[in-house]
């Protein structure tokens, strides 16, 4: 890798498909050894960005550097340093765990001894050491994805591109998965991940929010939360839908979102708002339990950024440059 402190750099990366601009002038940088999260709704351009960085999709405009290689000129050389893991890692179901690993190891030209050592180590970390001779098709969904991770790591990449890697994976496998990722970070690997789980986004060093192919914000989760104008109120109630309909559009409330046990509101003045909310909900003949201020989550930020007032002046807050 070159002397640059950035493992991944995007400069005005753009890709259009018929009728849609999937990625629109995207620029950001990921530092070496960092875990960087891309968050956004479906169609935000996350997967397209990942595929361009992996070298399987050519951008229409802009440039990108991964592991010190300019993808326009050196995509093939960059591939040795990159690992790409999509939502469903492509495994051969009629090959065994070992045969799948061996296949990908040979495509990357990993020497035999290194392959043996590394696959033993990775399989152990994934809790799959005893399944080496099982057909990949006979593994559970979480196991398959962990095997994918093992295959994706067999060539000791410098940069990992993970596209919603734990989507639909059971909690135990997800935990194994993240443990492996943290080990990699300790080893100096750079990780760029997209995720639909916002709790996962909070584990990243920095997060970028993507919407319709553009970046809305980019910062550490803590800074992003601190920069949220107003505060988040949690209303615990059994039947949140009528309450949401009642409160949506109220002056002083910028977003109302249904969460697990009730609602989250982003409001300007929480102390004044709490008693006002209680009386309005009671007046409408609805009921609720606790109303209290809570720490904002990435999810709150994201919904506020896409739907609320904040997004309108969002580009002033775009600190994602780092170029």
């Amino acid at each position: 890798m070159s002397g640059s402190e950035n493992a991944i750099e995007l400069n005005g990366l753009t890709k259009s498909f018929p009728g849609v601009r999937a990625v629109d002038g995207l620029s950001f940088a990921v530092r070496r050894g960092e875990i960087f999260g891309l968050v956004g709704p479906d169609g935000a351009g996350k997967t397209t960005t990942m595929r361009m960085l992996a070298g399987v999709l050519a951008p229409d405009e802009g440039s990108a550097t991964v592991a010190g290689f300019d993808l326009a000129r050196d995509a093939e050389r960059a591939k040795h340093r990159i690992s790409y893991m999509p939502q469903r890692f492509g495994l051969y179901e009629e090959l065994t765990v070992d045969e799948n690993i061996r296949f990908y190891a040979d495509l990357f030209g990993v020497p035999r001894r290194e392959r043996e050592e590394r696959s033993a180590e990775l399989l152990k970390a994934a809790g799959m050491a005893e399944f080496r001779s099982r057909l990949a098709g006979k593994l559970s969904g979480g196991m398959k994805q962990k095997l994918g991770l093992v295959c994706a790591l067999i060539h000791t990449p410098e940069v990992m591109l993970l596209d919603e890697p734990t989507n639909g994976v059971d909690p135990v496998s997800r935990r194994d998965f993240w443990r492996i990722l943290y080990t990699l970070l300790d080893q100096g690997v750079t990780i760029l991940t997209t995720t639909a789980y916002l709790d996962e986004a909070e584990r990243c060093h920095r997060v970028a929010l993507l919407h319709e192919g553009r970046m809305l914000f980019c910062d550490t989760p803590a800074n992003l939360k601190a920069s949220l104008p107003g505060a988040v109120l949690s209303i615990v109630c059994a039947d949140p839908r009528p309450v949401r309909d009642l409160l949506a559009g109220t002056e002083g409330i910028s977003t109302v979102m249904i969460v697990g046990d009730g609602l989250h509101l982003v409001v300007r003045d929480p102390q004044r708002m709490i008693p006002e909310l209680r009386s309005r909900i009671a007046a409408a003949g609805l009921s609720c339990d606790a109303i209290e201020q809570v720490a904002p989550s990435i999810e709150d930020l994201f919904v506020e950024a896409v739907q609320g007032d904040w997004g309108d002046n969002g580009h002033e807050r775009d600190r994602g440059g780092e170029r």
């Binding site: 399987v56 890692f89 492509g90 495509l107 990357f108």
Partner: peptide, 16 residues
Amino acid sequence: REREIGTLEQIMVTPI
């Protein structure tokens, strides 16, 4: 088939 099960894309990100 490789396209359908996703291995085609996986192979294309290797140096093959």
